[in-house]
Design a protein around this nucleic acid. Structure first.
Lengths: 259, 259
DNA sequence: ATGAACTCTGACCCAAGGTCAAGGTCAAGC
DNA sequence: GCTTGACCTTGACCTTGGGTCAGAGTTCAT
């Protein structure tokens, strides 16, 4: 009956829903327009302009609470605010692109848990005669290590990779895995512990496997204990073996956290 | 005391907050892990894997309700779902880029309301001797026209642009704007109406200005009335002028919606 | 043994709308 | 003149993906 467009026409023009327009009124972002004789809202071009401004900013991810002050500020502040919104939007876009690229790693489980270097390391293990079960346990250990001591993980991996070139170390490790199936009082455990400690002391470079996870911070030391305990619950023989090795190393002067 | 990492370590590893991890448990996205003797949750590598999978999908904008079914589906369906998520993400990214580019038009008010062609049209008007006030009114009219008859706006603008080359039409239009200030019973109104109608009838091409907004649909006809009424409330002389013109055109056989 | 830093559950809060309900208004067709 | 369907009004509750707060227990280092 009167001039101006209705709320649904205004909403369609701005590309939002009727409810959204009323939402903007309720939050004071767009002034309520005149009402006609039936109480219907009638929008003129001033309100349409404001509406389009608001939804453009809202669609760009600006929180509604910031939009009002932005539009009511002077031209200079407004320009600065717009530049800021554009900057944030650019960041957001780059983040989404990174996440999109990350998605294809989801197809393979390890892809999101371990970096490529660690996966390559695991891929080499079958050549050393380790069983799929052992490798899965090693994988879990790597994942936990990375979760617990992320800052030491790269160095740790480097040391373990290097140790793979040491035939004797690989052999001892394999026997240690087998030891999980032994009885806790099996005499071979002490024998294996001695051989392991001897080899570590003869090749001090191997100790870097341990130190790469220690000394970085007090926290890291505590976490080392947690990692070394991982799996003990499953195999009592393994627990005894680890305990013996740690004790012998410690008595040889190698600092091992004892928690 | 037991193996596995605590909730805050798991959360840090996955890049989310502790609260978010619990949220995922509550919604069944990640199974509750074992509890230690104090009732603390202890996460192993299987839970860490699941947690990272969930947050990767959630960060890519997948609704939580869809994530569970996705991860529990077989590899083929999962791959298809991932491809779909990537597609949606790409759309979203392109949308955000468009919105970012749109933002700089906000600096100038008309930029978001009218397309470049209409702005160029308005920019030419001062050369024809129209006052800033008249131009603002014309601008409002264009905005409302675009809001009401978006599908006819381009044609309408083309016709109005063409009419700008018609000196007599421009002169009549300027007199019409002046008429807003006249008394409603000013005898010049009838005179101006006659001159306008005569000119329209001598130059039938001008009638396209009207028809570009009509006949497109029944709705559009009704909306034409709304547009033609725009401003009438402000100037009674203008209302009378419009009414006379419409009446005379109609009696000359030109179809004008009469609402 | 004391304090700091974690953990637990549960309850409420938030933005930015969507949905539903219960009625008033308007134009059209019969 | 009456109905039908499309709009419009307000108000109250629902949703998503968490955040915040409260009150109590745990662990760890000093």
């Amino acid at each position: 009956m009167s001039n101006g467009v209705t709320i649904s026409q205004a909403a369609a023009f701005a590309g939002v829903t009727v409810k959204t327009v009323r939402h903007y009124h309720k939050h004071g972002l767009v002034d309520e327009p005149r009402r006609d004789s039936s109480g219907y809202r009638r929008y003129g071009s001033a309100e349409l302009l404001r509406l389009v401004q608001v939804r453009t900013l809202a669609a760009a991810g600006v929180p509604l609470a910031e939009i009002g002050p932005m539009l009511d500020a002077d031209a200079e502040q407004f320009a600065a605010a717009i530049a800021d919104v554009q900057r944030r939007l650019t960041e957001r876009i780059e983040d989404l692109i990174a996440r999109r690229d990350m998605l294809h790693r989801l197809a393979d489980g390890d892809g999101v848990l371990l970096p490529d270097r660690a996966r390559a390391f695991l891929d080499r293990l079958p050549d050393f005669g380790l069983s799929a079960e052992n490798i899965a346990a090693i994988r879990d250990g790597l994942v936990l290590t990375r979760a617990l001591v992320p800052e030491g993980f790269d160095d740790y991996l480097t040391e373990v990779e290097r140790a793979l070139g040491d035939t004797k170390f690989v052999e001892l490790s394999k026997r240690s895995w087998e030891a999980a199936a032994w009885a806790p009082d099996d005499p071979r455990i002490e024998e294996l512990a001695n051989a392991t400690v001897d080899h570590f002391l003869e090749n001090p470079g191997l100790l870097a496997i341990l130190t790469s996870l220690q000394g970085r911070s007090d926290d890291a030391d505590a976490r080392y204990g947690m990692i070394s305990r991982y799996g003990k619950n499953r195999a009592p023989a393994w627990a005894r073996l680890t305990k013996l090795v740690e004790k012998k190393l410690r008595s040889a002067g190698v600092p091992i956290p004892n928690q």
